[in-house]
Design a protein around this nucleic acid. Structure first.
Lengths: 192, 192
DNA sequence: CAGGCCCGGTAGACAATGTCTACGGCCGCC
DNA sequence: GGCGGCCGTAGACATTGTCTACCGGGCCTG
């Protein structure tokens, strides 16, 4: 595979592999070019700046995350509340499994240099979250958007704090699932 | 003031000012040295590596945050639940007001290069959080540590997602307070 | 009081990186 | 058949982090 992909796609792919294998600090423009077998100036033809290439890689991560969420939902449909729990688990697993990717995806300087509209890529996922929250919680207050936002923030916070071990240090826990369950029931009420 | 501070403290201070005024990308070792009026090799006497200087600056941020929390608690004592809300507000305000500092404080590579025990600096704050949660929630399940962890994660997530505008984009909100209130009542029950 | 030592800072070098510019080859098209 | 535009090369430049050699002056020691 990957036989006749253009250089642009190859750069994104190689950069992604580098990110996943060697960590975010290894993803330099020149190293990507080296591994792609081109000169250090070549990427500039497709990505005028280093940040734009990183944004493209991050974008790739968002679509991968969305795919995982969708496939998880497809194979085990259930109550909205159960589906939200599934999404949450996929989210946390993604953050823990593909740390570098996740970190890159939420780098503020990438999100703010919005040429590639990175944020827009995460919007459909949030919309799905909001819809499921609206179904799982019939009460009108607080509005589903607010609950969904708070829940997303909670997921994100758990993922981050867990990933770098702050929570294990503070709580002595060896597993983020109790935290996740606490967050889910806090925002959505008890399961089933 | 700052008349007879040693170079070590001056580097931390100048670096912090640089961080607050010009953003995280401006905080280079050489620029700090320049602004401190010393040669580019001077910092090495006190900080063997760039990351260690950054860690010291981040540490400074944690002590500042702790000071703000304590002063807020001192001037308006109330029920544990109200105090938690105060802490949360201070936390979010800190993250929004001193963005660069906050970002630096939670850079995983700083937290992981634990020579300076950066994480330990945030521990007392978390302990305070846990104690207040235990007082505000008499129920034994889930344990206070878990609730405190989930709440902290939620605060952190709100601060992050809010800071780079993802939440305003997704929810159209102009104020993070509804999210914060939703999170607080979700984890701690309704106010007063 | 003299001499050596070490602390704290200087200065230069080095590799690596991101960005910019000039160049070249190769393709297809008129 | 020539020619123009796409795509990649190659070299330069400033900047950064780190390393090493150096040095000046104050302090302790003899």
């Amino acid at each position: 595979m990957h036989v006749d992909e253009g250089l642009r796609d190859r750069l994104i792919r190689v950069g992604g592999e580098l990110l996943d294998h060697q960590g975010p600090s290894a993803v330099s423009l020149r190293e990507i070019a080296r591994r792609a077998g081109v000169s250090h100036g070549a990427p500039r033809r497709y990505f005028p700046t280093h940040l734009e290439l990183l944004s493209a890689i991050a974008r790739d991560g968002f679509t991968d995350l969305a795919a995982r969420v969708n496939s998880a939902l497809a194979e085990a449909p259930g109550h909205p509340r159960a589906r939200l729990a599934d999404i949450a688990r996929v989210y946390l697993d993604f953050a823990a499994t593909r740390r570098g990717r996740y970190e890159l995806m939420f780098r503020h300087d990438l999100l703010e240099s919005g040429h590639l509209r990175l944020r827009d890529t995460s919007l459909p996922l949030f919309r799905l979250l909001t819809d499921l929250v609206a179904q799982a919680r019939p009460e009108p207050e607080p509005p589903a958007q607010v609950v969904a936002g708070a829940l997303w923030a909670n997921l994100h916070g758990i993922a981050q704090l867990w990933n770098w071990g702050s929570l294990t240090l503070a709580t002595g826990a060896t597993d983020p699932n109790p935290l996740l369950d606490a967050a889910l029931t806090a925002h959505l009420g008890p399961a089933a």
